[in-house]
Measured scan of single mutants.
Amino acid sequence: QEEEKEIKRLAKKFNASEEEARRAWKKAGGDPETAEKILKKKG
């Protein structure tokens, strides 16, 4: 599933848990760029 792959990639890229990545993904409405910004800010 595309979403799961994206979440795993985000978690790995930002050294975050999949739970954090999933939360960022949901907050971003499934937009990878926005999710990255959220995780970057958090990191």
Rank of each mutant, 00 (worst) to 15 (best):
Q1T: 12
Q1D: 14
Q1N: 13
Q1L: 13
E2G: 09
E2F: 12
E2K: 08
E2S: 11
E2Q: 10
E3P: 06
E3A: 11
E3I: 12
E3R: 07
E3S: 09
E4Q: 08
E4W: 09
E4N: 08
E4S: 07
E4V: 07
E4A: 09
K5H: 10
K5L: 14
K5E: 13
K5N: 13
K5M: 14
K5D: 12
K5V: 11
K5T: 11
E6C: 09
E6M: 13
E6Y: 12
E6V: 09
E6D: 05
E6K: 06
E6N: 08
I7F: 03
I7A: 02
I7G: 01
I7Q: 02
K8M: 13
K8A: 10
K8G: 05
K8H: 08
K8T: 08
K8I: 10
K8D: 05
K8N: 07
K8S: 09
R9E: 06
R9K: 09
R9W: 06
R9L: 07
R9S: 05
R9F: 06
L10P: 01
L10H: 00
L10E: 00
L10Y: 02
L10D: 00
A11G: 03
A11L: 04
A11V: 07
A11W: 03
A11C: 11
A11N: 00
K12A: 13
K12E: 08
K12P: 00
K12W: 08
K13G: 02
K13D: 04
K13C: 07
K13L: 11
F14G: 02
F14W: 11
F14A: 03
N15V: 04
N15D: 07
N15R: 09
N15L: 06
N15F: 07
N15A: 08
N15P: 01
N15H: 12
N15T: 05
A16R: 09
A16D: 02
A16E: 04
A16G: 02
A16C: 15
A16T: 15
A16Y: 04
A16W: 03
A16V: 15
A16L: 13
S17H: 04
S17T: 14
S17I: 03
E18V: 13
E18W: 10
E18Y: 15
E18L: 15
E18D: 08
E18N: 06
E18C: 11
E19P: 04
E19D: 12
E19C: 10
E20M: 06
E20W: 06
E20S: 07
E20L: 06
E20A: 08
E20R: 05
E20P: 00
E20G: 02
A21M: 03
A21F: 02
A21P: 00
A21K: 00
A21W: 02
A21C: 11
A21H: 00
A21L: 02
R22A: 07
R22E: 06
R22S: 05
R22F: 07
R22I: 05
R22K: 08
R22M: 07
R23I: 12
R23W: 15
R23F: 11
R23P: 01
R23V: 09
R23Q: 13
R23C: 15
R23M: 13
R23S: 10
A24Y: 02
A24M: 02
A24D: 00
A24E: 01
W25P: 01
W25G: 01
W25V: 03
W25H: 03
K26N: 13
K26M: 15
K26H: 13
K26Q: 15
K26S: 09
K27N: 10
K27G: 07
K27S: 11
K27I: 14
K27M: 14
K27A: 14
K27V: 10
A28M: 00
A28T: 02
A28D: 01
A28G: 05
A28L: 00
A28Q: 00
A28K: 00
A28E: 00
A28P: 00
G29W: 05
G29F: 08
G29C: 15
G29P: 02
G29I: 04
G29S: 06
G30Y: 04
G30I: 01
G30L: 03
G30M: 04
G30T: 02
G30N: 04
D31K: 05
D31F: 03
D31T: 03
D31R: 05
D31M: 04
D31W: 03
D31A: 04
P32V: 14
P32W: 13
P32G: 05
P32D: 03
P32T: 11
P32Y: 09
P32Q: 08
P32I: 14
P32K: 10
P32R: 14
P32E: 05
E33M: 12
E33A: 13
E33Q: 11
E33F: 12
E33R: 11
E33V: 12
E33S: 10
T34K: 15
T34L: 15
T34P: 01
A35M: 06
A35H: 00
A35D: 00
A35K: 00
A35W: 02
A35Y: 03
A35L: 04
A35V: 07
A35C: 08
E36Y: 05
E36W: 04
E36S: 08
E36C: 07
E36I: 07
E36P: 01
E36K: 05
E36T: 05
K37W: 09
K37P: 01
K37Q: 11
K37N: 11
K37Y: 09
K37I: 09
K37D: 09
K37V: 07
I38Q: 03
I38R: 02
I38K: 02
I38Y: 10
I38V: 04
I38N: 03
I38P: 00
I38D: 03
L39N: 00
L39T: 01
L39H: 00
K40N: 12
K40L: 14
K40H: 12
K40S: 14
K41F: 15
K41E: 14
K41M: 15
K41D: 14
K41N: 14
K41R: 13
K42Q: 14
K42F: 14
K42W: 15
K42R: 13
G43R: 15
G43E: 11
G43F: 15
G43L: 15
G43S: 12
G43D: 10
G43W: 15
G43C: 15
